[in-house]
């Protein structure tokens, strides 16, 4: 498989995952606002999850709901529209290996959003729009899972989407922790359970958490579930396990495999209660994110022909 094509498949996987994650994030937080109408910073924390504050303030001055939603829906930084455009562009340049209908589906999503993305700015149209986006992403993923051979192209796509997913999980967890640990708002402390539930729901993890963790919704268990649970498909441990598996199916995998195994070991040794006691978890997640960035570097150097 051509290095250039491998790279495009990888980014295709990442962007498709990002579309869905962003849509869920907006959707869950829109609901949360209805539960906690007095908490002002919810939208701001959504912005910090993306890590694109700088770009936001270049375009907007106030971080209110309307502006942040506009930014997340249609902007050149990290918006849904941007991710769809990039996913489509990567699909367009790999049409010779992508199953036909997959291209048709991402193209249809693109055309649909070109027409309808603005409907999400106001609350009344938002739910339907986000539901449509998630459904179309699921349809695409289902189609790919059912119709694409588990070949190298598939492996690169899977690596891209798993890394993106793990990255998003750490970001959401990080913002949840920061808000709770550093907050001076007394009403947030009171609503701690609601906020942790929100973290879970942002990752569609609430139901699985309930089924697999025999306790109340609390910080320690949520963090452990999202970082360490091996069975939940959006936990960092599970995503990295999948990436590890995909690496093994590819040629020349020694170096990236060695590094990802080290990262996995670090996670499994994490002492969550101790980390939750202070700023430790934030630092831990920071390190984890830079590990994942270097995994990306390993991939680019090994298979895409970049210098390390």
């Amino acid at each position: 498989m051509l290095s250039r094509v491998a790279e495009r498949m990888y980014w295709f996987g990442r962007y498709v995952e990002r579309i869905e994650n962003t849509a869920r994030l907006i959707s869950v937080n829109t609901n949360l606002v209805l539960d906690l109408p007095h908490v002002k910073y919810i939208w701001g924390s959504l912005l910090s999850i993306t890590g694109y504050e700088k770009q936001f303030f270049e375009r907007f001055s106030v971080e209110d709901e309307r502006n942040i939603i506009k930014f997340l829906l249609d902007d050149d930084s990290c918006s849904i529209m941007m991710s769809v455009r990039m996913a489509r562009e990567n699909a367009r340049t790999t049409r010779e290996i992508m199953p036909n209908e997959a291209w048709e589906k991402i193209n249809r999503l693109y055309l649909y959003l070109q027409k309808n993305i603005q409907k999400g700015v106001k609350r009344d149209g938002r739910h339907q729009l986000l539901k449509d986006i998630t459904a179309q992403c699921q349809e695409l993923n289902g189609y790919l899972a059912g119709c694409m051979s588990a070949d190298e192209a598939w492996a690169f796509m899977k690596i891209g989407s798993d890394l993106e997913r793990a990255d998003m999980t750490t970001r959401i967890l990080d913002v949840g922790c920061l808000n709770l640990l550093n907050t001076e708002h007394p009403e947030i402390r009171e609503q701690e359970t609601i906020l942790w539930m929100n973290v879970l729901q942002s990752l569609t993890a609430y139901q699985m958490y309930r089924q697999h963790v025999d306790d109340t919704v609390n910080g320690e268990d949520v963090a452990a579930f999202l970082l360490l649970d091996e069975k939940f498909p959006r936990s960092v441990a599970h995503c990295l396990y999948d990436v590890n598996e995909a690496f093994r199916s590819l040629p020349n995998h020694e170096m990236p495999l060695k590094n990802i195994t080290q990262t996995q070991r670090n996670i499994s040794h994490a002492d969550i209660p101790k980390l939750l006691g202070g700023p430790g978890l934030h630092k831990f997640i920071d390190d984890l994110q830079s590990d994942m960035a270097s995994i990306h570097g390993d991939i680019a150097a090994t298979w895409f022909g970049y210098d390390n």
Partner: peptide, 25 residues
């Protein structure tokens, strides 16, 4: 079922054969 390549994906070796840059080399 052929590879779609751009010029930068191909290289001519010292043996005057044409090669493409793949994930396996």
């Amino acid at each position: 079922g052929a590879e779609l390549v751009e010029g930068s994906d191909l290289v001519v070796g010292d043996d005057d054969h044409v090669y493409m840059k793949t994930v396996a080399g």
